[in-house]
Design a protein around this nucleic acid. Structure first.
Lengths: 212, 212
DNA sequence: TCTCCTAGATAGTTTTACTATCCGTTAGCG
DNA sequence: CGCTAACGGATAGTAAAACTATCTAGGAGA
């Protein structure tokens, strides 16, 4: 198919598709002439993935490129599957690893990981991301919210167990890595939205709200 | 204190503080002259909250302003506490409420809410956000990941119960609404990071990864 | 008095994610 | 065969967000 049909099928404007081609988010179509190229079903599929990551997941274009490069890696060993998701943890600007308060938060994260018997790289970006949030809560004097850390950890453990099982149930490595990416990003979006809904429901129940 | 000390105590540059003042994220200091103002401890505290929401939570400046306006509302009824968090659900651009696939996803969300006996506003933005993510997963043909919906819902329910209990345990309404904001945004950051860690740990366990 | 700081206003910068225009080429229709 | 509309590729322009810099006066403290 030509670019007009790719645009029609995906609901993405032609200039945007050209932009994604330039940025390497979409592989070029098969050239059939000096100024003609042929796009296939895999382009429609890839374009849908890109739009989902950007629109629903809020992933920056540059990060999508990194992730897709990993997805396209032909022989990705299965124990490195999750490594792809590391690209998706935004590395915070202005984090000060020398700040004692931050180091304490990071130690708290490491303690949780050790206590649960989790096997996680020492340099996993998610450790730092968790420390950032915990340090922020402490700095704001919201220690009582941190009392929920075990509940959050339990929830994370259960959810992760189900998700990883789903990924492994996939056949080939290509399907698995795609499940990792979509599961990480879109699963997070679903979970966060459900958490908001459950919060509203719980507060309505406990505070006895009435529909106005 | 004057602006230089506010800047020093918060680690935020003076131009940025002025920007936040202009944008209404920070209340003006008490004027002591035509070009002098006095800032207090509450300004330091507010500035820390703003930075946490922006840096750790990734909340846009405009949204922070909305949320803080609600936080400063003097007599917020307790059943409207959670309404403040609604500002924090980003309203997706390019969502098509007439798309049958999206309507199906939205119906799925409504079914979950009904089945759990949750009491949630019909127009809650989180319903639409959940539908967005579910519709995206379906469009990508990742139906097996959606088999985890009950697990996600369970996790959301448990986490929300703990969090709302913490909020209610706070004394005054001002403390409660601050717990809602920080708990929603920073709690989400903690939970997402822990989920990533648990995913890596689970995959290492199930796939038998070894540290290289 | 002299210098530095301050509040407030205005303008400039950087990054991100597109969007528009132009150019030579080519497909497809009559 | 000729014509028009679409194409691929390149380049330039735009819009929003989040700062950042400069300017103008007017105090504060030594």
């Amino acid at each position: 198919m030509r670019i007009a049909e790719l645009s029609a099928q995906s609901g993405t404007s032609i200039p945007t598709i050209k932009y994604y081609l330039r940025e390497g988010l979409l592989p070029p179509g098969a050239a059939t002439g000096r100024n003609q190229a042929d796009y296939g079903e895999e382009h429609v599929r890839r374009l849908r993935l890109v739009r989902a990551l950007i629109d629903v997941g809020g992933v920056p274009v540059a990060t999508v490129r990194e992730v897709l490069a990993a997805v396209d890696e032909p022989d990705l060993p299965s124990h490195k599957l999750l490594g792809v998701a590391h690209c998706l943890v935004p590395a915070s600007t202005r984090r000060d690893p020398d700040d004692p308060a931050w180091r304490a938060a990071r130690a708290e994260v490491d303690a949780i990981v050790a206590e649960r018997g989790w096997w996680v790289h020492e340099e996993a970006p998610a450790r730092d991301a968790a420390a950032d949030a915990i340090a922020a809560l402490r700095a704001l004097g919201q220690d009582d919210l941190l009392a929920n850390l075990p509940v959050w950890t339990d929830a994370a453990e259960r959810v992760a167990a189900a998700e990883v099982t789903t990924v492994i149930a996939r056949g080939g490595p290509a399907d698995m890595v795609e499940a990792v990416v979509t599961g990480t990003v879109l699963g997070e979006a679903v979970l966060n939205a459900l958490r908001r809904l459950a919060q509203e429901a719980t507060s309505a129940r406990l505070l006895g709200a009435t529909p106005d």
